[in-house]
Design a binder for these strands. Structure first.
Length: 238
DNA sequence: GCGACAG
DNA sequence: ATCTTGTCGC
């Protein structure tokens, strides 16, 4: 089928992808589109198979107040774009959209595994997904990327700014006391304060927010043959 | 020029 | 991301 949207959706080269990001960044809205505290949030994540291009994407819809899982969807497919730092969106957005489409209810906000605005061209995965879906979104990354930061105080809830010179791109947030911080940045139609508060509300027990934790587990399990979940098969030596 | 580099 | 054994701790 003809790709009517061109490079903005499926770039053929790194140069085209970077150019597309420069175009798409103009569509990011740095104001809140939330109507008060959200009722539901969808956590998203993608898992990869070792020596192949097979991937699995999961979307888990969670009730923010109770953290109960309302519904979840998982889909397997093939990665159509290589991993290139700064271009993660082109690799994961397509299959994540498929997983999102399988959800019955529309989430109030998306939580992504990676960065939003704290990106070389200010258009990380969370911005990409937000712009394409029109939904509020933000990212929670596990490791540092482009910005500089000082370690936040060690108590849960403490944070320090992610900086690029004088520009604030996000926050290093301590979701658990004495545990490495996570990196929160805005994606689309969400403020940094909202993203920070949500990250903390969604991470009562572990370092990572429940939505992305559950999406990670689901996508990972989807790559395993049926019947081998949480069980060891063909142990070395018989 | 060289290294580092979300997932 | 994934490859990997044991180990310390709640």
């Amino acid at each position: 089928m003809t790709d009517l949207l061109g490079p903005a959706v499926s770039p053929a080269t790194v140069a085209e992808a970077e150019a597309a990001q420069e175009e798409l960044r103009a569509r990011v809205e740095l104001v809140s589109g939330l109507r008060g505290w959200p009722v539901t949030v969808a956590g998203l994540d993608v898992s990869y198979e070792a020596g192949s291009s097979r991937v699995a994407a999961a979307a888990v819809l969670i009730d923010v107040a109770t953290l109960a899982t309302r519904e979840s969807a998982v889909v397997t497919g093939t990665a159509s774009f290589p991993y290139v730092p700064g271009l993660l969106g082109f690799r994961e957005v397509p299959i994540l959209l498929e997983a999102l489409a399988k959800l019955t209810d529309r989430p109030d906000v998306l939580v992504c595994d990676g960065y939003g605005i704290a990106h070389p061209r200010r258009f990380g995965l969370a911005c990409h997904l937000g712009v394409v879906t029109g939904l509020p979104s933000f990212g929670v990354a596990k490791t540092a990327f482009t910005a500089t930061f000082e370690a936040p105080e060690t108590e849960r809830g403490q944070w320090s700014p992610l900086l690029d010179g004088a520009e604030t791109l996000g926050r290093a947030v301590r979701t658990q006391s004495d545990v490495k911080p996570v990196f929160v940045s805005v994606g689309h139609r969400v403020t940094l304060d909202e993203a920070t508060d949500l990250t903390l509300a969604l991470s009562p027990h572990y370092r990572l927010p429940e939505p992305t934790r559950r999406a990670d587990a689901l996508s990972r399990a989807a790559l395993r043959p049926a019947g081998q979940d949480a069980r060891r098969v063909s142990p070395p030596g018989g």
